[in-house]
Amino acid sequence: MAALQLDFGPLKEPIGFIKLLEWIFAVFGFATCGGFTGHTALKVKCKNGSGPVEYKANFQYPFRLNTVILLPQKTCNSTVATHLVGDFSSSAEFFVAIAVLAFLYCMAALLIYIGYLHVYREGKRGPIIDFIVTVIFAFLWLVSSSAWGKGLTDLKYSTNPDVLKDQLELCKSEAECTPSAVSGMGSLNVSVVFGFLNLILWCGNAWFVYKETNWHAEPAQHQDPGNVAPPAPSS
């Protein structure tokens, strides 16, 4: 087994410094999305004279809105509870999963760079595997960030009190509904930004990892002995 040679020098090189940024940005990616909790609310005044009453629905990651009750049973004589509409868990969970996997891979790669860079550079398979994984993560960041960006747009629409007021049957027939507060989603916007920043970082890092592979190394120039000019005669 190769001996550990602790050296923080690679963190000053592009291959290590960018990996450290990827590690940090991955943390911000899954933290801003996975840790979100918000709410939306409507004020309901029944036509029979009761109210107005504010009803608040709390939602959080992974954003399965169809399990969240907005209006409880027997609101204005309604016999069933009213839920929010939509399930955005697939895009949100996919985004967070990629961020967590990227975080773990960056941690493992940094440990190799700091402790076993001599083994990494002496071998042929290490840089090639690193390059392939880096390209795959760049592609996954593109897909997951795009999917989550679309999911976030739909999430904002589905929790908009003005939209809820116009969609609910109870607000059209048995009650007068007024839009109330909805929580800001700035942290979710930031999560999408970090997703695309990670895409840029991983694409840039792919080039520096590629330079570590033997695919990038130029073949040695060998002189043909038959074409070597004879030494000039000494005077």
Score class of each variant (00 low, 15 high):
residue 1 M to H: 12
residue 2 A to W: 14
residue 2 A to E: 15
residue 4 L to G: 06
residue 8 F to G: 08
residue 8 F to T: 11
residue 10 P to E: 04
residue 10 P to R: 01
residue 12 K to D: 12
residue 15 I to D: 06
residue 16 G to V: 09
residue 16 G to F: 03
residue 16 G to W: 00
residue 17 F to M: 07
residue 17 F to C: 08
residue 18 I to W: 05
residue 21 L to W: 05
residue 24 I to W: 02
residue 28 F to C: 07
residue 29 G to C: 13
residue 29 G to V: 04
residue 30 F to Q: 00
residue 32 T to P: 00
residue 37 T to H: 11
residue 37 T to L: 04
residue 38 G to T: 02
residue 38 G to K: 02
residue 41 A to F: 00
residue 41 A to C: 02
residue 42 L to V: 05
residue 44 V to E: 00
residue 45 K to A: 14
residue 49 G to A: 09
residue 49 G to P: 11
residue 52 P to M: 04
residue 52 P to F: 04
residue 52 P to L: 06
residue 52 P to A: 12
residue 53 V to F: 11
residue 53 V to T: 13
residue 57 A to Y: 01
residue 58 N to M: 07
residue 59 F to V: 00
residue 61 Y to C: 01
residue 62 P to E: 00
residue 63 F to E: 01
residue 66 N to R: 13
residue 68 V to P: 04
residue 68 V to T: 11
residue 69 I to V: 15
residue 70 L to C: 03
residue 76 C to Y: 00
residue 79 T to A: 15
residue 79 T to D: 14
residue 80 V to N: 15
residue 85 V to G: 05
residue 87 D to A: 06
residue 87 D to R: 08
residue 90 S to C: 12
residue 92 A to E: 03
residue 92 A to S: 12
residue 93 E to T: 15
residue 93 E to V: 15
residue 94 F to K: 11
residue 95 F to W: 09
residue 95 F to P: 01
residue 96 V to N: 01
residue 96 V to Y: 00
residue 97 A to F: 06
residue 98 I to A: 00
residue 103 F to K: 03
residue 104 L to C: 09
residue 104 L to T: 10
residue 105 Y to F: 06
residue 109 A to G: 13
residue 109 A to M: 14
residue 109 A to V: 13
residue 111 L to S: 14
residue 113 Y to D: 08
residue 116 Y to A: 11
residue 119 V to Y: 11
residue 121 R to I: 05
residue 122 E to I: 06
residue 128 I to A: 10
residue 128 I to C: 10
residue 131 F to P: 06
residue 131 F to N: 09
residue 131 F to H: 13
residue 132 I to H: 10
residue 139 F to H: 05
residue 142 L to C: 13
residue 144 S to W: 01
residue 145 S to P: 08
residue 145 S to F: 02
residue 146 S to V: 03
residue 151 G to D: 08
residue 151 G to L: 07
residue 151 G to Y: 07
residue 151 G to P: 05
residue 152 L to T: 07
residue 153 T to Q: 15
residue 155 L to W: 04
residue 156 K to V: 14
residue 157 Y to F: 14
residue 158 S to L: 06
residue 163 V to A: 10
residue 163 V to Q: 10
residue 170 L to E: 07
residue 176 E to C: 02
residue 176 E to F: 07
residue 176 E to K: 12
residue 177 C to T: 07
residue 177 C to V: 09
residue 178 T to A: 07
residue 179 P to G: 06
residue 179 P to T: 05
residue 181 A to E: 10
residue 183 S to N: 05
residue 186 G to A: 06
residue 189 N to S: 07
residue 189 N to L: 04
residue 190 V to T: 10
residue 190 V to W: 03
residue 192 V to P: 00
residue 195 G to Q: 01
residue 197 L to N: 00
residue 198 N to K: 04
residue 199 L to F: 15
residue 200 I to V: 15
residue 205 N to V: 03
residue 206 A to I: 04
residue 207 W to R: 11
residue 207 W to F: 14
residue 208 F to D: 12
residue 208 F to Y: 14
residue 208 F to T: 13
residue 209 V to H: 03
residue 209 V to Y: 02
residue 210 Y to Q: 09
residue 212 E to A: 15
residue 213 T to A: 12
residue 216 H to F: 15
residue 217 A to F: 10
residue 218 E to L: 14
residue 222 H to Q: 14
residue 222 H to P: 05
residue 227 N to A: 12
residue 227 N to V: 11
residue 228 V to Y: 01
residue 228 V to R: 08
residue 229 A to E: 14
residue 230 P to W: 02
residue 232 A to P: 01
residue 232 A to L: 06
residue 234 S to W: 09
residue 234 S to E: 12
